[in-house]
Design a protein around this nucleic acid. Structure first.
Length: 541
RNA sequence: GCGCCCAUCGUCUAGCCUGGUCAGGACACCGCCCUUUCAAGGCGAUAACACGGGUUCGAAUCCCGUUGGGCGUACCA
């Protein structure tokens, strides 16, 4: 690098979630872009907590957010939990800073004490609405002199602090994503920055913190774009340098441009693809015995993916492409590649709607790329939680689960899918059958029970310790059907139902090998008894 | 209402700045192949420049307008 060239200071960016008790997937996308930008330029990513309006228990409301980021591998350099040079990182603990800033704005005349009563402001606003003009405060109750203040206070009025917005000129924002955005200052209302009770509002707090924390780039969702002029006004009032702004498109509902919201789960469930994703996760949550309410478990919330056993890299990769692209063909980017290639100028302007199917496709690709032992590692916590293996598993259990994972191959899309394969963990006498399939494939299939019985004796006659691996089983079955001039199809379905209880799943030879000879014999026996029981009669539970 | 933002296949997008390609890729869908089921995989097909005016030999690309959508307009964030 040319030593005479000034090295730009490393950027400082922030993500400032409200402690709401959950991490919104759209918020993750915004945080991801900030994080990527910081990592790409050797800057700092700061996690500040916007709890100015918080009534809830902070620790409980914040934990899911921090856990979500940790799970995703989005780490922060300063902020919640870890502190840093600009402590505290909780806005509720920075009130004095905001009040001092309000004083400064008041002193320099860019803000005023507004003694208007709420209903008076309301009347003015209604009037403006009726006249179809932007609402502008009359400033009739602005206590700008000591006399005015004394008079208003004598009337029993209290004040809020309002910005005294310019009434002429143009505000120009050079947005890194949207280019030059212009608006008339006169269209800006005199926003309140400090309430009558002395507490401060978002716009003031946000700007004061950005100034104090040395934020160089404000990268946030597009919904904040119309708020930017008033924030710029505060920056200027504080005589602070302006950060660069980059407004990201929102993450929208499936098939719409409306911002994704966790409260509209019922509506999204009418979208079949969204419903599929939800049901997929739900099945896993149910098996885990989780109380999955829409408030805590829903594809809009990051925890959904963690609980169901998604790979964080896959989720991140999908989110990256929601509003950003590298070129006309690259889709799979590892975190390192994402950092290496991310630039704000390739961020899209239009809102991007959330596509559950495409997310799943990323998840499948990432899962397929994982070696069996890695998949085993992801799957283990699930079988441990439901008690199918001990915690930690014995070497034999480990080997068994590994075999199941290997045989499952691409069928395990998310780690929690392992819970679909209870037939390998349930005791032989507890195996439940899919009755409809059982009826079709065994009870009403001509010759099925006879064939099953014949195969059963053949397997039983195998010498003790005979090879029962998948290839060996394949050979046994092949010879069994060949001796009867039949195809494999003649026995496969009945056998699958008998030993696994369901008509779908792994390759049959894998199933038999995984179960082992004694289980196979026991299950065929039990199926034969069950087949003899008339349908509708009470079968084994 | 007013202000701002946005607009390419169903969806995510490339292309737009620096006009000229059969408008490219991915996901989904559909069809075929493979196949003991289910997945997976392979091959193929359908599918888009919101509309209307300009400018130009030529417009997805530049300009104007229209329409549609989104966000904001709180003593919320």
């Amino acid at each position: 690098m040319n030593p005479t060239e000034a090295t730009p200071a490393p950027p400082r960016v922030r993500f400032a979630p409200s402690p709401t008790g959950y991490l919104h997937i759209g918020g993750v996308r915004t945080a991801l872009f900030n994080w990527l930008f910081a990592r790409r330029h050797g800057g700092r990513f700061i996690l500040r907590v916007d709890d100015t309006d918080s009534q809830r228990n902070l620790a409980d409301a914040l934990a899911p957010i921090l856990d979500g980021f940790r799970w995703l591998g989005i780490d922060w350099d300063e902020g919640a939990d870890i502190g840093g040079p600009h402590e505290p990182y909780y806005q509720s603990q920075r009130l004095a800073l905001y009040q001092a800033a309000a004083e400064k704005l008041l002193a320099s005349g860019v803000a005023y004490r507004d003694y208007a009563r709420p209903e008076e402001t309301q009347t003015e606003r209604a009037e403006a609405e009726a006249n179809k003009v932007p609402y502008l405060a009359s400033r009739r109750w602005a206590g700008e002199t000591a006399e005015d203040r004394a008079r208003f206070e004598a009337e029993g009025r209290t004040f809020a602090v309002r910005l005294k917005m310019p009434r002429t000129g143009t505000c120009r924002i050079e947005d890194l994503v949207r280019g030059t955005v212009e608006s008339e200052w006169a269209a800006e209302a005199d926003h309140v920055i400090q309430r009558a009770d002395g507490t401060c509002l978002y716009h003031l707090a946000s700007v004061v913190d950005d100034v104090e924390m040395g934020i160089t780039h404000v990268i946030r969702a597009e919904e904040h774009l119309p708020n930017t002029p008033r924030q710029i006004f505060i920056f200027e009032g504080l005589e602070a340098p302006l950060p660069a702004f980059a407004h990201l498109p929102v993450v929208a509902e499936p098939g719409s441009r409306v911002k994704l919201s966790k409260r509209k789960l019922d509506k999204y469930l009418k979208n079949p693809e969204f419903a599929d994703l939800y049901q997929h996760g739900r099945r896993i949550a149910d098996r885990l015995g989780l109380a999955a309410t829409p408030e805590t478990f829903n594809p809009v919330i990051t925890d959904f993916y963690r609980i169901a056993g998604f790979l964080p890299e896959a989720v991140l990769n999908y989110l990256l492409l929601l509003g950003w692209s590298l070129d006309d063909h690259t889709e799979i980017l590892s975190p390192a590649e994402q950092i290496a290639h991310f630039t704000l100028d390739r961020v899209n302007k239009a809102a991007a709607s959330f596509d559950p199917k495409k997310l799943m496709s990323f998840q499948e690709k990432y899962m397929q790329a994982l070696p069996v032992d890695e998949r085993l590692r992801r799957v283990l916590p699930f079988v441990e939680t439901v008690g199918w293996v001990a915690t930690p598993p014995s070497p034999a259990e480990l080997e068994r689960v590994r075999g199941i994972v290997a045989a499952a191959a691409d069928r395990i899309k998310v780690a929690g899918d392992i819970l679909d394969y209870d037939e390998f963990f349930v005791a032989d006498e507890k195996l439940a059958w899919d009755e409809k399939a059982f009826d079709k494939r065994i009870r009403s299939a001509a010759g099925a029970t006879e064939l099953l019985a014949a195969l059963r004796s053949e397997i039983a006659e195998l010498p003790a310790g005979a090879d029962f691996s998948a290839p060996a089983v394949e050979k046994i079955l092949g010879e069994f059907v060949a001796a009867r001039s039949l195809g494999l199809g003649a026995i496969v379905h009945a056998l699958r139902l008998a030993v696994a209880g369901k008509p779908i799943g792994f390759g049959l030879f894998d199933i038999l090998a995984l179960l082992g000879r004694s289980s196979v014999l026991a299950r065929i026996d039990r199926a034969l008894v069950h087949a003899a029981t008339p349908p509708g009669a009470i079968g084994p539970s």
